[in-house]
Design a protein around this nucleic acid. Structure first.
Lengths: 233, 233
DNA sequence: CTGTTATGTTGATATATCTCAATCTTTTGT
DNA sequence: ACAAAAGATTGAGATATATCAACATAACAG
């Protein structure tokens, strides 16, 4: 099991690849001595909205979908796909110490659990670490602002364009990718029904904007057009 | 001009009423010596999305609407109404040092400008202050999560119910209130058109859920019913 | 006080999107 | 390999909401 290291193969995470490099050797020892590695199978729930937020976790391998749940309407909103070296926790930290998001493994996934109390201690000792955390949180807020605007003001074509562009640039790092997401996941990500997702993907394929083979392989052919659709909504 | 004080009439703000009480005398001196008071007239822009985030400001008197702007579609999303003793800044802090929200005075408003650099310094020195800030930010994220769910999954009746309940509980602290918000503002807050807002308010009045006189006075009559509408969407 | 501008209201119409149900395809477990 | 379950697709129909245009009322400035 890889350790958080001060230099060399520094354990990177979304908070900032350099974040753990800010720690002293003693702080790293403390984190490393208290970590637990846990493996989840495809489809397993890693943590659930409403549950206690006792650990912040770091994804070592695999992929995780993170979403908001509504008990009443059983409508979900998929917020992001988390990948290796990203930390996942949630905004309950320092508030109610509960999870406000649900995390489910999209494939077999290895994670490291870091105790929230350890996180807090180090943050109190190390202001640079705290600053990086605030920076990360603020970046997320900016991201959520964009989501709020996109999901409330754009219509279906624009929202699907957004989703495809997000997957290509942020998740798979390529305009040609295989995804583990179902049509329902794409719908949850775009705040619409799976039927609408299917129809719009079909339209995009027919007009040569994208290609889509076996339901899960996507290829963005005309990126300019897709970005234009994203812009005009 | 009231000073931030360590004890007694502690200058409260949304970050946490006790937040400034966490500072040392020296830190308070530093903040107080660098503050500037600025008054805005009704309708004036306090800061604009895209502009430089050089100061965090505290509302001394008046009311401010804070919203996300979209240049292309000229569709806004009203995020909150800020009141006296609340701090307004934005998620650009420690990220790009730009504003991502726009603030406009709903009535004559007095504000105090605190330099972002002062804020940073104190946060580096005082971990409790930093923790309060993180807590505040996380609370906002939880709020935005709720907005994302409500605005994307509820339909017009539920969204108007949410808006009215928010104004009553969070802004005016009473089920009977006069608001400075226009029908368009209510629409921007509920992610719909002003025509729809008007029609639904009319329905609510006709079915005895609320009363609404001179366009700006609202009274929630049947709160249970309104909350039920909010829940069922 | 009065004309002008901004805001609110109403109705008719268009349309985007959801819903529901049937069918087809893929994946999964034994 | 096969049956069963889960996911994807298609179409027809319903409906919520936006759009547009006309008009009414309130706010404002000279």
């Amino acid at each position: 099991m890889a350790e958080f290291a001060k230099s060399g193969n520094c354990f990177s995470c979304e908070l900032k690849s350099s974040m753990f490099c800010l720690l002293t050797d003693i702080q790293l020892d403390e984190i490393n001595s208290n970590r637990q590695q846990v493996t989840f199978k495809k489809g397993e729930t890693i943590f659930k909205s409403g549950g206690p937020l006792t650990h912040i976790l770091c994804i070592t391998s695999g992929m995780v979908k993170i979403f908001l749940e509504d008990k009443n309407n059983k409508k979900n909103l998929l917020l992001k796909i988390a990948k290796p070296t990203q930390l996942i926790g949630g905004p309950g930290f320092l508030v109610d110490e509960l999870h406000h998001i649900t995390a489910i493994a999209l494939e077999d996934t290895k994670t490291c659990f870091i105790k929230v109390s350890d996180f807090k201690e180090i943050m109190a000792e190390n202001s640079k670490f705290a600053f990086e955390f605030i920076k990360y949180r603020n970046e997320r807020v900016i991201f959520y602002f964009q989501r709020l605007m996109d999901l409330t003001h754009k219509q279906t074509h624009g929202k699907i364009a957004d989703t495809l562009l997000y997957l290509a640039s942020e998740v798979y790092g390529s305009d040609s990718f295989d995804t583990l997401l179902s049509r329902q996941d794409l719908a949850d990500m775009s705040a619409m029904t799976k039927e609408s997702v299917i129809r719009i993907i079909k339209e995009f394929v027919e007009s040569g904007i994208i290609a889509c083979n076996n339901h899960h392989h996507f290829e963005i052919i005309d990126k300019n057009k897709l970005m234009k659709i994203s812009k005009t909504g």
